[in-house]
Design a protein around this nucleic acid. Sequence first.
DNA 1: CCTACCGATCGGTAGG
DNA 2: CCTACCGATCGGTAGG
Lengths: 209, 209
Amino acid sequence: MNDALDVRAALLTAATRRFAQGGYAGTSLQVVADDVGVRKASLLYWFPSKADLREAVIDAQLDRWKDTLPAALAAATTGRDRFARILQVALEFFDEDPDRARLLLRECLDRPDAMRARLLTRVAPWMGLVTEAIRQGQREGRVRPDLDPEAWLVQVVVLVLGSAALGDVADRTVLHHSAAQHQDAADRRLRELVRVARSSLYLDDAPEG
Amino acid sequence: MNDALDVRAALLTAATRRFAQGGYAGTSLQVVADDVGVRKASLLYWFPSKADLREAVIDAQLDRWKDTLPAALAAATTGRDRFARILQVALEFFDEDPDRARLLLRECLDRPDAMRARLLTRVAPWMGLVTEAIRQGQREGRVRPDLDPEAWLVQVVVLVLGSAALGDVADRTVLHHSAAQHQDAADRRLRELVRVARSSLYLDDAPEG
DNA sequence: CCTACCGATCGGTAGG
DNA sequence: CCTACCGATCGGTAGG
């Protein structure tokens, strides 16, 4: 009875990778089944339709966020520490597996309305917390007064998602360096992303702890 | 003899829109032909294969950049004016038709290696001009000394492309406002993008002319 | 630019 | 979870 759940989980993992790299329309149920080593009809036993498989893949990915983010929020208390922590957790989450960013990006492009509905119920709640913290920072004179909290947060999310999804192309294009220098390029890109986010947020430029 | 070229151009336009919105794999030659009002076999007369159609669509889009950007560079002379002008031209280019950003984003996700090869030959040249101008600004003390020119440019490109491609989703999610407020949301987003780019670039915060 | 056609593959079902 | 199967659609070709 454990093997059965393993097959389902393996199908989810394989589908996530395939959808992220080839897209939903560009991925056949056959190749996902082949990846796991079962028949296509067996895949359709666990997931009644291709659309159901997509739903499960996206939901699983957003669920991981639901676990990761509150933990980061709870761990840090001061505003400045909280900002650095959240950004770091987000960067690690997507950099650990860029397919996550590619999957979400593709879903935004493929079904903007469906993605928007999901974001409203699953992401909007904690987004309000972040923008309120920013406004508090503005009242205290730490955060730039001409910053638009909601719009700024959108830009940072776009930056984190886009940088993770396209980072590989960018890293090997800005400097067409060797494979050994590949990690350096990724480090430079992430460091600069943090610098851009921080310097566009705070009035002064003190480094984080 | 003019009608014939019009059909080809119409096919290119229809394919651009379809590929941007539904993706390459998610778009059949049949619907592109239907959009224009010709038979699928006629499409395959102008573009021998689906892959050829894609190549033509992407090339046409990058060609438009080749005309737009040098004009913007030539129009502005001072460094600060040049930066504002280039960013403004880029934002207008993609905001005028967000499908351009979606198309390029999708191509990066679908065929990263092919996109990288194109970027190296068609975008890398003027990218060197921009990073050199940034370094000059650093020598003159106008630009933040801890900024990484290549990495910063990558972030700004990701931001412009991502913001245009995902702007619609973001605008209607951050504040689930009415259609009348939709333009306001887009304005806020673009204004904040410019602010983020500028404040992460310059040491002081003087507004542009 | 059209009619007519093809082999391959698609998502999905029947039945066990 | 499998075998066997299906109608629809896919990109592409032949021939004019």
